[in-house]
Design a protein around this nucleic acid. Sequence first.
DNA 1: CTCATGTCGATACACTGTATTTGTACAATA
DNA 2: TATTGTACAAATACAGTGTATCGACATGAG
Lengths: 230, 230
Amino acid sequence: MTVWDRPEPPTRPVPLDRERIVAAAIALADEGGLEAVSLRKVAARLNAGPMRLYGYISTKEELFDLMVDEVYAEILPEEQPGDWREALRVLAHRTRQAALRHEWLADLLGRRPALGPNGLAVTEATLAALDGLTDIDTVMRAVETVSAYFTGAIRREVTNLRAERATGLSKRDWQRAHGPHVTRMLATGRFPALAKAVYDGTDVDAETSFATGLDWVLDAVAVRLTTPPP
Amino acid sequence: MTVWDRPEPPTRPVPLDRERIVAAAIALADEGGLEAVSLRKVAARLNAGPMRLYGYISTKEELFDLMVDEVYAEILPEEQPGDWREALRVLAHRTRQAALRHEWLADLLGRRPALGPNGLAVTEATLAALDGLTDIDTVMRAVETVSAYFTGAIRREVTNLRAERATGLSKRDWQRAHGPHVTRMLATGRFPALAKAVYDGTDVDAETSFATGLDWVLDAVAVRLTTPPP
DNA sequence: CTCATGTCGATACACTGTATTTGTACAATA
DNA sequence: TATTGTACAAATACAGTGTATCGACATGAG
């Protein structure tokens, strides 16, 4: 049996690390949403067997945690803004932009505590920007309130975005976008206020809507930060 | 062949409707979370084959939509409060209470537009409470901002609740609750502000935290509702 | 009483996350 | 150098998933 008959030795398994795994998973999620992320597909994209991944993560949820933390690296502002208000505003907008780049983030935001290094760094930077303005409890309340707002707002925005994309390409047009159903419901006359909102409401683009609500919340925070409780 | 040898005629299939299906699904979700809801298990609980459900829903997501809308029936306040602020506050609190009764709601809130009859009714009632105070656009912005807040806040609360439950029974105690990891991270000194918050912060119970943040947001809304833009 | 109809359940398929077993390339030992 | 031990990759296996398809069968109409 000559060399020519014998096949080449099998290629050594490609080296793996969490970074590569997470990158592959994020790529899959960016292309096809969270549901397109399966351990088999992630592994396949790395020329590895599915079970190999379990050396680096012990459950699929952990993979999600790593993905989220990776995105937190994009969210973390490179330079510290001086103003607390600017810090919170930038955090909100950067999170929103990250979620628009990686829509699946909206599904994961707030689903599990963000305890990865980048998540912690973001929290640290945020708290640092507010540190010393008042007692720590008020600061925490402020951060939590703003976070709750932009988490919820981002989630709704992405949800609407998907709905619009699914029901054709209608830019907004709530009633005809969601087809006959909403139209019919509104026609029953049982939802006058809603009908008015749908028909008479101006449709503002998502970004200004987000920014406006954010400003309101920041105003509310400002009041509490500047007038500490007795 | 006597009667005794012959089997009884097969029992007629139990009558089914969406209400029963949704009730079964909710029961399963209440017991074991969303992931415990499978079409097979829902059907089994109704003594039916899995495929039978597809006469009533055409996809599992639709079942989730029905479940959410069912809970919106619990959220809808029975009597209309006169004050707009009271209306929004009650909406937020009722949603939170529903989410504490049905924790899976936190996973579904804001995931898809709530266009079911009860969801629409809730929206209608909310808009009605604010109708006429200012232009419809400002009203929409107000509702959206408050909704974004309490959606995000509820999500975080339920997430923390689950984390606490999973890491033992520690009431809060962030650092030791999540075991050595957070402790070690804080010990590195790279997160001074966060460390201060963890060690020096008072832990307030979730409800007052929720209510406080809500009040802040409502204050911000009040400012815009009473002083309409020129 | 026969036949058409429409519904129900069984079967099937392509996948999922993960446990367990099997193979095998390399390192340490004799 | 020959042999054994050990790690780790891969294959296999399992119990489950959502959903498409199809065959059987009870019920209604003629």
